[in-house]
């Protein structure tokens, strides 16, 4: 590269890395703080994919048009295919086992008071183990 102090490639790389790291940290905070299994997966499944893609794109911009960049491009394409697939597989496995989704407290109390059990979901198994 040129020997200027700030060139455009480094600035774009640092910006993409910072935005990607922000998305990753936001996904991690959501993964720790959310109350339910499904909402935790909602936090991690999208934020991690986007943050990782942005960081790897920044590294591609830094590396230039070499063979290494093509390799990282294949890595990005595989991650964009595989990460939503694995998230969907985990969610479907959890729903088949019978984890019930978290709902707000007022909604649940009202639903229990009316005695309406015809809610369309079976709610008796796996309620404690979220």
């Amino acid at each position: 590269m040129s020997d200027t102090i700030i060139n455009l490639t480094n600035v774009i790389t640092v910006l993409l890395l910072l935005v990607g790291a922000f998305f990753m940290l936001a996904g991690t905070i959501g993964f720790v703080r959310f109350p339910d299994f499904y909402s935790r997966m909602h936090a991690t499944g999208k934020c991690d994919t986007l943050g990782e893609g942005l960081m790897l794109v920044g590294l591609i911009v830094y590396g230039g048009a070499t063979f290494v960049s093509v390799k990282i491009l294949f890595l990005i394409m595989f991650i964009l295919l595989a990460n939503p697939t694995s998230t969907h597989a985990i969610a479907k496995a959890a729903y088949d086992v019978g984890l019930e989704p978290w709902r707000k407290l007022d909604d649940r109390v009202e639903w229990l008071d009316t005695g309406n059990t015809d809610d369309g979901r079976d709610d008796q198994d796996g309620g404690e183990e979220r």
Partner: peptide, 26 residues
């Protein structure tokens, strides 16, 4: 609680490790 949170945690840490390996390579 539960096994599915642990599966997600392993998946998330593995996803972060990929970026970490690429950064170490750079």
């Amino acid at each position: 609680p539960g096994i599915f949170n642990r599966i997600i945690a392993v998946n998330v840490i593995g996803t972060k490790t990929i970026v970490l390996l690429v950064l170490i390579g750079f």
